[in-house]
């Protein structure tokens, strides 16, 4: 029951983040909203893992946290430096 309440709260926050991603005037609002959505997805996977009695969901949550971070940093690097580093050139 308590996990259902936690999952509901996470769902509300995810919807708010999606709303900001839709409305967000600038590009960076959308990146922020997607990053927040990703972090909440990590928590949602963990809570659902406990809700359904599947402790192996935590590995999925951990991997999702890794991927979410790398995705956010890649998008930011692309928009900050124009590209993700030209081939054959050191990561100056």
């Amino acid at each position: 029951m308590m996990f259902a309440v936690a999952a509901a709260a996470l769902l509300v926050t995810m919807l708010l983040a999606l709303l900001r991603a839709y409305v967000g005037p600038t590009l960076y609002d959308r990146i922020l909203a997607v990053n927040t959505f990703g972090t909440k997805t990590v928590l949602m996977i963990a809570v659902l893992g406990f809700l359904m009695g599947r402790p192996d969901f935590l590995d999925i949550a951990l991997v999702y946290a890794l991927i979410n971070f790398i995705g956010t940093i890649a998008v930011l690097k692309f928009f900050r430096y124009g590209d993700l580093g030209r081939a054959g050139e050191g990561d100056s």
């Binding site: 936690a6 709260a9 996470l10 926050t13 919807l15 708010l16 983040a17 900001r20 909203a33």
Partner: peptide
Amino acid sequence: SFFVITGGVGL
């Protein structure tokens, strides 16, 4: 849950 929702509203 409270802090997560306040973050969403703040967002």
